[in-house]
Design a protein around this nucleic acid. Sequence first.
DNA 1: CTGAAAGCGCTTACAG
DNA 2: CTGAAAGCGCTTACAG
Lengths: 330, 330
Amino acid sequence: MATIRDVSKIAGVSVATVSRTLSKPDKVSAKTRKIVNAAILETNYKPDILARNFRTRKSSTIVVLVPDIANPFFSRVIRGIEQTAQSLDYAVLLGDTQGDRGRESTYANMVNTSQADGIIQLDSHNPFENNSNVPIVNVCDCIRGTDMPTIELDNAAAARKMTDYLISQGHKNIAIITGTLDSTITQDRLSGYKEALKNASIKFNPNNINVGDYSFLSGMSATRMLMKYQAPPTAIFCMNDEMAIGAIKQAKLMGLKIPDDISIAGFDNISFAEYCDPPLTTISQPAEEFGSKAMSMLYRVINQDGAIKKNTFLDFELIIRNSTGRNSHD
Amino acid sequence: MATIRDVSKIAGVSVATVSRTLSKPDKVSAKTRKIVNAAILETNYKPDILARNFRTRKSSTIVVLVPDIANPFFSRVIRGIEQTAQSLDYAVLLGDTQGDRGRESTYANMVNTSQADGIIQLDSHNPFENNSNVPIVNVCDCIRGTDMPTIELDNAAAARKMTDYLISQGHKNIAIITGTLDSTITQDRLSGYKEALKNASIKFNPNNINVGDYSFLSGMSATRMLMKYQAPPTAIFCMNDEMAIGAIKQAKLMGLKIPDDISIAGFDNISFAEYCDPPLTTISQPAEEFGSKAMSMLYRVINQDGAIKKNTFLDFELIIRNSTGRNSHD
DNA sequence: CTGAAAGCGCTTACAG
DNA sequence: CTGAAAGCGCTTACAG
């Protein structure tokens, strides 16, 4: 590969001039620029970005910590991150952590070794033990009480909206299948559910809370348990669409009609929500926008360029489809 | 951040010795090692990997070119890449190309600028105009007639197996909904389908080929057209699961019973295949293994360490579920 | 507008 | 086993 030195020799100028022609062309005379550009073409010179990054002490790379890249919601968030990173000339390193703290800190540490300039964390952990001054943005599932800027949904409000809707359909015995309990998202959605019940003066029944883990299978097994109660719920609100799809499958296996016998709702509005049978009532989240906003925010944090908003909330939408309907049990 | 210089001063040794303590500890006396390690601890020194990469002329980073990260099959492949990359101490840069050649070559060019050591390409394009000597592995959707090592399925054999199975169920009028025609995968699966018909002495009907684009919607619209024929097909083989799920939705909308009125099969065995209604008959592909094998192969190419196999074929499996059944039309 | 020079933080032959 | 020194390919104050 040709280096800047090769170009400078052929052009008969200093390496400084070649460098300037590339980075600050207005500081170079038109004539010199022409000569240099010709030499660049001739040598097929491509600047060594690794060397440049090393010299300028910035990698123009960010790392995204994601619990599971194969999750259909996260993969859309990452698509949003990636698109915006491209337009800002940042490269995106993938840190699939599988929820493992060790992997998280390994990846997060890439900032300390100059391999990345900042971090986008999609999980509700702080990858650093104490508040460091590493640029980091927390998106989707956000920790409370840290200095990290967050981009999130008002998950309590969204869960309240869904629960309100189910109540409006005449449901009183409404179960909820939660995600893993250590996640902020789970906690917020749970409190939104409880609030809605309270506002409607419906007594909260602890048996109606079933802990899942955001997987299809946990949606199935939770539903199996719930439907064995003496007074089974007439509606089940699942904290994500996968669990709701699992719940639908289980309900059908038990011979139940949806939504006549049981209403089932999800959260996320993944693309399959529209294609399952019946189509899923759910909360739509702007997945790509989460990614895009997170990347823009991280850019501002890294480059101290623009206002840093501590907490950003994006809009959600209740999508009513046919997996839910009026309570026909009483 | 502490540098190697800081450590060397505190330890009272040269920077060379600090460097060796980290990279070739057996070349350093136990006593010196102890002193150096203490100094490293004291200063909380983290080697600057960017500087190291620059110095050693390798980035220990690879870039993966993927048409769409949000595709549930690709995201599993990437998970496989990422896991293996981790164990080989490589970082993974994400290149979501959206099928755009310009983006592909931008990302591929990162190897020429020292930002990456090699490329995994998930699409059937050569990102370089002419055969370059850039380390690259082509996986899943592979180009014919290049020097790139490929890791793929025998897609023709897999499509033949599915078609054979449908024929064995008494189907003769079997339609196929293809992916985009410029993809090698599409071509291979199409020829497998044709071969199977030929082997069974079933006359191939060009009207039974409907071109889709691997999306739900194209599965729906293709099915709408196919079912309007005077003699509509009794089975539809879709080249991926999304189109099959779209086809199922459309068939239901038209009041058809699956599989009684129409058998529908997919390809990929994404996680939703098991949860749609009826569960989808499909071809299972080892998505993670594709990624993992691709990464191992790329490692060997980059480091010229181990045998390079030009074409690797992984195993597929026919998964029979309830979206297909015996032809009950004649 | 241009060039000479320093230097980013490492690694690694080379000499001892 | 250890150190002094060169150098990876750039960028950027500084001087002119």
